[in-house]
Design a protein around this nucleic acid. Sequence first.
DNA 1: GTGAAAGCGCTAACAA
DNA 2: TTGTTAGCGCTTTCAC
Lengths: 345, 345
Amino acid sequence: MQKRARKPSAHDVARLAGVSQAAVSRAYTKGASIAKETRDNILRIGKSVGYHPNPHARSLIKGETGIVGTVIGNPQNAVFMAALGALSKGLSKAGKHLIVATAEGSPTADAQVTELLNYRVDALLIMATRISSKLSRQCRAEGVPVISLNRGLREELPNLTSNDREGARQIAAHLIEQGYSRFGVIAGDPGSAVSEERVSAFTAYMEGRGIGAPVREVGYFRRHETMQAMRALLSQKVRPDAIFCATDYMAFAAIEVARYEFGLDIGPDIGIAGFDDIRESAWPSFDLTTFSLPIVPMINKALEVLLSKTPIHSSFRIVVDGEFRARGSTIRRRNPRSKKRASKR
Amino acid sequence: MQKRARKPSAHDVARLAGVSQAAVSRAYTKGASIAKETRDNILRIGKSVGYHPNPHARSLIKGETGIVGTVIGNPQNAVFMAALGALSKGLSKAGKHLIVATAEGSPTADAQVTELLNYRVDALLIMATRISSKLSRQCRAEGVPVISLNRGLREELPNLTSNDREGARQIAAHLIEQGYSRFGVIAGDPGSAVSEERVSAFTAYMEGRGIGAPVREVGYFRRHETMQAMRALLSQKVRPDAIFCATDYMAFAAIEVARYEFGLDIGPDIGIAGFDDIRESAWPSFDLTTFSLPIVPMINKALEVLLSKTPIHSSFRIVVDGEFRARGSTIRRRNPRSKKRASKR
DNA sequence: GTGAAAGCGCTAACAA
DNA sequence: TTGTTAGCGCTTTCAC
């Protein structure tokens, strides 16, 4: 059985090319002081034997590994799959690599971040979860830039967010304008900054307009719990006629409960809005009014900052704007094209 | 502005502990020959200064990096998000790291695999895309185990598949049993092994039962194209009454075209089945009959093999069984609970 | 422009 | 059990 054939080293190439090993290093170092023909010759020979500099040896000297670590709280979250694509593409374009860790289940990403720090990543991106401020301080001490996505503007950590509060307000305004009058909200996890920003901005807007605070239920970002919450809302003596859900994924659950369990016509009978604008939201099954989370621009912005190697102060804040998307799930007049209900009842 | 504070090295710890640097190395090496109290003392001091062995230095010597690379063809594919979670969890449990690359757009993962090989990954897992057999040979020559997921049983590459052909047959049998009689299929990408296995097994089964080959359209795994394909199928003079789609994701598109554009009642009017059993398939909006792709067991099996460091022969084959899931989308009798259509027309 | 030599942080013989 | 020594494969002075 064939053992792993050692990859050729710079030494091997040097011998073949009749130069010193240092020359080989220079040949592969952009901007190094080396004669063009020496370099060309070395590169030619290197290529012929399949030589590539060992990045780990290089990282020992340079003190940087070319690896960016990311930890994703919930890999099932559709938003972060789009994020992952953008991340991996952006990094490979920059000649960097992406190490992915998931923190499903655990409340913080501390274990994963510690692990990545020990692995000497050059930078960290935290998505859909949080890290302790102690760990955040450690990162800064070690000179490893960290950015958290959407941790809320109040936290004392470098933060890249979308304008969720504004989005929630636009959704609220739209619902009022459509003539809905009795509002409910289904929050995500009460401990989640994302959920709280969205829900509190929605609530505040309603209160600011002299409308009482919407009835609040909690869905914990989970489907089952959201369905329970929706059932509770729809079973009240005075039933809400418009529901705002902290995420699109939750809104789908709400829509299905309303439609299939309560026989309601989404839009005319009850308005339902979400947040994120994931792929499925535009599908006719949901046709969901929502506010787009600009995840790809956010990732690109994050990469730009992380790769610039400028130290990131804890007061670092960037806001990327999403966009309001009005769709059928909050349109009051009956849609003439709808074939869902032939009779009025 | 604070520069990156150099992480403490084994040397630093050695000096503080009054031992040789090699002793520090031994203290952190499981099973090394070292006195318990020496080790304890070193570990205590190491911990106090935040020492962790540099894995890149270690990898230089050991010749292995502890990194497993994966390349995902289509990061939007819900199946592979579940896969990613399982992968990352399994690897971190084994003390390994996961580098993720995406090959969206390009037909093969060759560029990404080359990149990962240069990065000295210990093993490779290829999902939802393919690599050239030349590159596969190179991996074997370099002693890097590679497993491709679902590349079809015919290919001469190490391969871990689900029993898709059997699944397609079970779906076909079920449709016949339900009384459907005019069949259509919507294939994924004609160049995709996954799609071809599923579709050809379905077709073969129908032909074997004396029913003609189903009408075939192609949806390229994409929503828009699948909708077009479905429109074409439903616009035929003799309309099919049951459609098999290569994936659940495509089946959703088919369902929505049938329901919202043609006003059909899914199940009674037209049977629609998919393949994969992703999360959304169980939702009432789709309630899709399908065959589960056992992606998590597949990942675990793949990890088991990849981490065992046994050379993987090109004839390597493992099949993990999925399960048939009958749901409402292929149930002929009208569902009494359905509130979708009050009138018959 | 090029080679010799030192050293990045670690592990693995080899002595002691 | 421990320290000493020699590298792993590379980059980076420092001479020439």
